[in-house]
Design a protein around this nucleic acid. Sequence first.
DNA 1: AAGAGGCCCTGATAGC
DNA 2: TGCTATCAGGGCCTCT
Length: 287
Amino acid sequence: MPELPEVEVVRKSLHEKIKQKKIKKVIVRNRNLRIKIPLDFESFLRDQKVIKIDRFSKYLIFHLSNNSYCLIHLGMSGTIHLIDLNKQNHLTNTSFYHSPILPPKHNHIEIIFEKSKIIYNDPRRFGFFQIIKNLSLLKKRLNHLGPEPFQSKFNLEYVLSFFRGKEKNIKNYLLDQNFVSGIGNIYANEILFLSKINPNTKVYLLKKKDCEKIINISKKVLTNAIKKGGSSIKNFKNLSGKNGSFQKNFKVYERKGLNCKRFKCEGVIQKKVISNRSTFFCNICQK
DNA sequence: AAGAGGCCCTGATAGC
DNA sequence: TGCTATCAGGGCCTCT
């Protein structure tokens, strides 16, 4: 599920529902997430107020009342579910994905407030929850991440200087969180299609114009995806109504063998593994 | 230093 | 039907 747009959609809903709420209780059922959850995690969070919920790249950041932070990453399969404790049901008016009936097997963490609770479900356990004690540690923790596509730092000069003399292909760089953060495999494919750039192109061969396109289209694609509520794919089950719909806009992702959607292009979408990730592109308009 | 590859883990699906 | 192989929206680590 989670690239920057999906995480942003989750952040918005969470912020709306639990900001200024006090944590009453925390339950951890499985501490073996990507980062092991320490034994004092529950007691640290208890009685903290969640001041607000931020996001950087694909990370959610809970600001806590004691000036510390809870950093959350959803990995490949992490989802957050909000339960109204009065109704013991999913709140259906949020943008939370997935079925109201959770397979409880992978409900690893619950954070309980007075009238609601959030459940963290993650079958593959590539996600994590981590307490960060203060702002400078938080900055240090996220320091390796490059700018988001929206930031002014992600500009032509930055991109050109990053690419100078580099041998790797462009697909690789869009997925490289040190270069630009927040883009994952789906949006990398979509951005390259809209930029008419072959994912295998070595970055030192890219023209100034190509780099400009990548910058502008990255912003556009992510913004648009956020507007549409993110992308809901695979085993996602509808709640009714307000789910992400950006998957309907996919031009190449999961479209192997289908006709190119570009006006008057006769191409067919190819699928190739590039640096261990499935890569989709048109054999004609992405030269 | 840069780049290739492997690994963490479970579940869904494809192919035999 | 039931087995095995492959693949999945991420990120980190090691080796060369």
